[in-house]
Amino acid sequence: MENSSIEVHNLSVSYQNVPVLWDIDFSLPKGQIVGIIGPNGSGKSTLLKAIMGLIPLASGNVKVLNKNLSLVRDQLAYVPQRETVDWNFPASVEDVVLMGRYKKGNLFRRLTKIDKVIAQESIEKVKLEKYRDRQISQLSGGQQQRVFIARALAQGASIYIMDEPFVGVDMATEKTILDLLIQMKEDGKTIIIVHHDIQTVSNYFDYIVMLNTRLIAHGPTNEVLTEENLQATYGGQLNIISKIQSIIKEKEFPLREKGFEDK
């Protein structure tokens, strides 16, 4: 596809000969908020790691902006799951956000004034300027998530890949993060998010990839988010059926009070 942000071709990943992702093939549009959804163990995080080149592929390839990853690595910013790091690490908010300015080329040199200005701007974008010098363990879950997003923003990339950014954050933070994502989208950024809460899918994402080891469906949310596809993705998980019904209901009664379903 000419205008794709990320293309994945025949991608398979396995752990100890058990396939976690099998023959995944899709391409994602630019400048949209894309959701990757599927049940636990469906390979969502693995797919992100495969796109970022963090794990070996059993087969297939990934193209970012029509190029090999190594050529456009600086266009890709990764926001890992918040729980994957130890927040007791001795660092301040600013220290962590500055890490977004680390590159292969400047790793053994000092950061410049420009780096610091960019980090400061990124902290302001996520509204954490009051907490700039605070130790990261003294932040709430939502604030920690925003620190991670600020760090990614500091990279100045055009594609943002986020692993479950809404997990363990309160409603107010969820709204703050979502507003920020919409702002980023308006700035022309592409945002790809692994998400597990199917209740909110139709409100958050322009485009979705439905995954359960195999690719179930991908496309604009209003076309792809059908009962049939949800069955295929979450099938077998009986407790999910009730959720699916509630989603269908939600489609008839969108959560207007949240105020972002038109974006």
């Binding site: 963090l54 690595r73 890709l76 990764y78 680390y102 590159k103 292969k104 760090r151």
Partner: peptide, 8 residues
């Protein structure tokens, strides 16, 4: 993992 994603 993040360090790896930066190409370090």
């Amino acid at each position: 993992d993040y360090a790896k994603s930066l190409g370090i």
